[in-house]
């Protein structure tokens, strides 16, 4: 059964927009799961079940790693640190907020990814064209999230998106090490989710301790 390219691309676009727009303490885990699921149809159509397993396992591992790291950090007796969800610098008064900027970034990523997909051939063995859109879109959204990042969580989400996008693009390129490259790229999202979860848990421990003292 053939795969509908427009459907696969639409799913990737929805995943990219979700990952770009998501904020808060669960942002990294939500973004990783969204991008993993969004790229799954594209990866499965290009690389088969093995590639699908790599991406889904990475997304699941990232979700588990984020939750586990947060739970462990709440119990560990380490120094409290920075909150990854608090902006590093105070935002200025501006017409559009950070999420509006990111949605705009999602919009301009569409033509950029489309151009790359249809104009730049990839392929280690056989040259292919037109299959790169989902990966290119996720990568472009991730890079733009890095560029407009205001928090550590933004950096973590951006890094996971570019890792998944880059890995999926490497799979489209093909060659003997296609799955290996995808697996290498997919190893970053669980690490980023664990780091963000750890920082969040460590900070919330301090916040809850301060609340208990005040009470």
């Amino acid at each position: 059964m053939g795969v509908s390219e427009p459907l696969v691309s639409t799913i990737a676009v929805v995943a990219g927009v979700v990952a770009l727009a998501v904020d808060g303490r669960q942002a990294v885990s939500i973004a990783v799961v969204a991008v993993g699921l969004g790229l799954a149809p594209s990866v499965a159509s290009v690389g088969g079940g093995e590639a699908l397993l790599v991406v889904l396992a990475s997304a699941a591992l990232a979700a588990v790693a984020g939750v586990t790291a947060r739970a462990v950090a709440r119990r560990a007796r380490w120094d409290a640190g920075l909150d990854p969800t608090v902006p590093v610098i105070a935002p200025r008064q501006q017409l559009f907020g950070p999420r509006s900027v990111r949605v705009f970034a999602a919009a301009i990523s569409l033509p950029a990814a489309s151009w790359v997909s249809f104009n730049v051939p990839v392929g280690a063995v056989a040259v292919v064209q037109g299959l790169l859109f989902p990966a290119a879109y996720i990568w472009t959204c991730g890079a733009l999230r890095l560029v407009v990042a205001r928090t550590v969580a933004d950096l973590a989400v951006g890094a996971t998106m570019v890792a998944f996008g880059g890995g999926a693009a490497w799979l489209v390129r093909g060659g003997g090490d296609a799955i290996t490259g995808l697996a290498i790229a997919s190893s970053l999202p669980p690490l980023a989710a664990a780091a963000a979860g750890w920082l969040t848990g460590r900070h919330s421990r301090r916040a809850s301790a301060a609340g208990a003292r005040a009470a």
């Binding site: 951006g158 880059g166 790229a185």
Partner: peptide, 11 residues
């Protein structure tokens, strides 16, 4: 991230 994006177009 740009280096990673270059990967699929190599060699």
């Amino acid at each position: 991230a740009a280096l990673l994006a270059a990967s699929p177009f190599l060699p």
